[in-house]
């Protein structure tokens, strides 16, 4: 999702400059417009349906000061991180294991790919039944949602490694371990990062949804609890914080990717 700025035609420097300012002004204007629409909507629809934006900001401020909000954020992030670690570990380890067993890979591949189609969120009630109402069902949810994109990317990445680079490394005397670490790992790193960009924000969303469905702490719980108590300001505050959290993580990932993969000539387009 690159910026459109590059598409602006470069005719004259002054014109380009004008267009640049027009875009900035437009963005600020649109942001203000959205805020105004929100405010008007709140005034028209009433506080039960749409919370007043300023009250939402105030609520976020108050809850941050009292520490309640930070506690919820911490719980959600911890859950996301643990689930992410689990899903990521299996998502990376399994393709490397399967690499050594081509026959088994061919045999299980269609089933793994079919299981991608199972909506993981729908499994939560089952997980609650099996694993109780603590963190376990949510960890399963987050872990599974992280596992799939990473597994698919690493699996495809290993398949797409340039055979010629492996041969080259063998000729100059690299061991199999060294080839795995150097050639294969680096070749699939862009795939891995593309998957990470999907999986990491998804881990946080999954944790929040998981908290909707079970638990008594975390951002998702905060939103759902507020909804059940007709505290619309609380629902809005929770959603705003959750969205900001995910967007910040996204932005951080983009930055890390840019630094880590400086050797890449262009962004690779990947579908997962």
């Amino acid at each position: 999702m690159t910026s459109q700025d590059t598409a602006l035609e470069l005719t004259q420097p002054s014109r380009l400059q004008r267009q640049y300012y027009a875009v900035i002004a437009g963005r600020i204007g649109l942001a203000l417009l959205l805020l105004a629409a929100w405010k008007t909507g709140a005034d028209r629809a009433g506080p039960v349906y749409v919370a007043d934006p300023f009250q939402v900001i105030e609520r976020i401020f108050v809850d941050t000061q009292s520490g309640v909000l930070l506690r919820h954020i911490y719980v959600t992030l911890r859950l996301s991180a643990m689930g992410f670690a689990i899903g990521c570990f299996f998502g990376v380890a399994l393709p490397f294991l399967l690499r050594r067993m081509p026959r088994l890979t061919n045999a299980v591949e269609p089933y793994i790919m079919a299981s991608v189609g199972v909506p993981k969120y729908a499994l939560v009630p089952l997980f609650i039944l099996w694993f109780g109402i603590d963190d376990a069902p949510k960890l399963w949810l987050v872990g599974l949602l992280v596992f799939y994109p990473i597994f698919i990317a690493v699996f495809a990445g290993i398949r797409n490694v340039d055979r010629r680079l492996i041969n080259m490394a063998r000729i100059v005397g690299a061991s199999e371990t060294k080839i795995s670490r150097e050639v294969i790992w680096n070749s699939l790193l862009p795939f891995f990062f593309a998957a990470l960009k999907i999986a990491l924000p998804r881990a946080v969303s999954a944790a929040i949804i998981g908290e909707f469905l079970v638990g008594n702490e975390g951002l998702g719980y905060m939103i759902e609890y507020s909804r059940q108590n007709f505290d619309t300001t609380g629902v809005f505050a929770g959603i705003v914080v959750a969205t900001a959290l995910v967007l910040v993580i996204n932005a951080m990932l983009v930055e890390v990717d840019r630094r880590f993969n400086a050797w890449r000539p262009t962004e690779r387009h990947m579908e997962l």
């Binding site: 924000p201 929040i208 949804i209 629902v235 959603i239 969205t243 996204n250």
Partner: peptide, 10 residues
């Protein structure tokens, strides 16, 4: 990027 599913309660 926003978690749209979080809008479900809304």
């Amino acid at each position: 990027g926003a978690p749209k599913l979080a809008l479900a309660p809304l």
